[in-house]
Simulated scan of single mutants.
Amino acid sequence: MGLLEAHRAMAGKIAVVIGGCAGHIGRGVTLGLAHEGVRVIACDNDREGIAAIVPEVEALGGTISAHCADVADEASLDAFWDAVAAETGRVDILVNVAGLVERNLFADTTRALHARDIRMNYDYIVQSCHRALPLLRASGEGAAIVNFTTIEAHRGAATFAVYAGAKAATTNFTRALAVELGADMIRVNCLASDTTLARASNAALAAEDFARLAELGEDALNKSIEFYVPQKRPPSVGEVIDGLLFLVSDLSRTVTGQTLHVDGGTSASWGFLDWPEGDGFMPAPLGGTLKKLQG
């Protein structure tokens, strides 16, 4: 199947996007699907985002039904899925994009924070997939689920311990569900991004982290990215959405149980940073960088 044919085939499909009305990525997913002619049913807990996304989708010639729901609350998410079931007899695409990340030493966290991180990054996805399953099976023609995860699901992400564990659970849940649903031609995949423009808006870094970077000048964060991301820049939101569109289109008809890393190469490098002062790619700085730091 060619690229144009695959994208034309998306027109008329029905997608549910959990967390699809606000934020760089969630809003981008909804607009990206709408641009392809997909009818979107989205939920979010951001009322301003809900109000704004409707005219944006309509300006693209698309159709959207936007609902207020909080994935942190089981009853609220169930009520949204009740509304989806009443509105449509089938779902072709499910995207679970909502999430929450906050940087803390594990010793400084609480059980309430642990429960929040697990709910927001794993448990609601299980609930959403379970509620969606009858609708995903309804057409008998297959469907696609994409669960947003992260590079932190694949490495020892200190100061993100419970978040990383929850995302790892999502990743393996996705693999297992892909095996169960293979005969139904319901494909289940993960999309793992890393540093994007959205990262600055979701409390991944604390206020003091941004303050220290600000003291170094407005280009400091970009300079840090050059050490960390092999491509020397993070993926744009649009490039993340391109990955999503691949996973939900017929171009990936036999891709299931996989994680697509849209990250500029950081998951390939696994900690090999491009240190300055002539040190080059190594897990730890060598003489050039250390001399600079000591100076």
Rank of each mutant, 00 (worst) to 15 (best):
T150G: 07
A75F: 05
V179K: 12
L94D: 11
A164M: 01
G288M: 00
I125F: 11
L191K: 06
D184Q: 09
I151M: 04
L290P: 08
F173N: 02
L273F: 15
H114W: 15
S139H: 08
G238D: 14
C21G: 00
G89P: 12
V101K: 06
Q294C: 08
A268C: 07
F148T: 00
N189W: 04
I14V: 13
A169Q: 00
V229L: 09
E36S: 02
T88A: 08
T196Y: 13
S252F: 05
A66C: 11
E152G: 02
N147V: 03
K292N: 07
G99I: 04
A220M: 02
V240E: 12
A83S: 09
P283H: 02
P276G: 00
S139E: 13
G280A: 00
S249R: 01
A203P: 05
S193K: 02
L113D: 13
E208V: 13
V57R: 00
A183R: 08
A83G: 04
M10S: 07
A42I: 03
K13H: 15
D184W: 11
T109W: 13
I225T: 09
V29L: 09
L221T: 11
A72N: 15
V101Y: 15
D70W: 11
G156A: 13
G257R: 06
L205T: 08
K167W: 07
V91R: 02
E48C: 03
L4K: 13
A157H: 03
G32H: 09
D242M: 10
L3N: 12
S193C: 12
E226L: 05
W81P: 04
N189G: 12
G156C: 10
D184I: 03
A158N: 11
V16R: 01
N121T: 09
H130T: 15
D78K: 10
V29C: 14
A75P: 08
L4C: 09
D263E: 10
A178L: 03
L3Y: 15
C43H: 11
I41N: 06
A22M: 07
V146N: 07
G238E: 14
A158D: 12
S201E: 13
A192L: 06
A198I: 07
T266E: 10
N45V: 15
G265T: 01
L293D: 09
G165R: 06
S201L: 14
Y163D: 06
N202G: 03
V16L: 06
I14E: 13
H67Y: 15
R27Q: 14
R187T: 02
H154E: 14
V255S: 07
G89V: 09
N172R: 11
D78V: 04
T254C: 10
G140A: 03
